[in-house]
């Protein structure tokens, strides 16, 4: 049975008829064609599908689209400013070469922003521990950690 789902994604109200079993990540990728949110493992381990929902970083492969009814969602496409200026976290990733193939990057950036929201002044230890829900196979995390530490004060100042 198709069901109707409605939510706000990157500031725009969206609604669609989907199969009940449609995962939130597939709704975002296939129905909305916002393909920056990636599927790396479909078992909630790799974190490539991380989005922001009602202010929290969540893994969009691990919930149904129906469960996001009425939610306010931000995907990686909604992180930079409307004129394309990068968010300070994105800018720090670029500055510190914190991405290589780019596949984990959208989820990593959203987790990093969430991390700084919860820990406005994190230590390296905290950053490494808090990244346990996001795999990166390219960078060895070294530069991701550097980028987050560098961006933290700037991101914290945005609130």
């Amino acid at each position: 049975m198709p069901v109707k789902v409605s939510m706000t994604v990157n500031g725009k109200p969206v609604s669609a008829e989907v199969e009940e079993r449609t995962l939130l990540v597939n709704f975002i990728r296939e129905h909305l064609r916002l393909t920056g949110t990636h599927v790396g493992c479909d078992t909630a381990q790799c974190g490539a599908c991380t989005i922001e929902m009602n202010g929290d970083a969540v893994k969009a492969c691990n919930m149904l689209a129906m469960q996001a009814e009425g939610a306010k969602i931000t995907t990686i496409e909604g992180i930079a400013a409307a004129d394309g200026t990068l968010h300070p976290m994105q800018e720090a990733f670029r500055e510190h070469h914190a991405l290589q193939c780019g596949f984990c990057t959208p989820g990593m950036v959203i987790s990093a922003i969430d991390l700084v929201r919860r820990h406005p002044n994190p230590s390296e230890e905290v950053v490494r521990a808090e990244l346990d829900g996001n795999f990166c196979r390219c960078t060895g995390y070294h530069n991701i950690v550097k980028a987050i530490l560098d961006a933290a004060p700037k991101v914290a100042a945005m609130r």
């Binding site: 670029r94 780019g102 596949f103």
Partner: peptide, 14 residues
Amino acid sequence: DYRFLTGGGQYTDD
């Protein structure tokens, strides 16, 4: 980097 950081990468599944 710009395209990867903003969700603009085009991978096969995209």
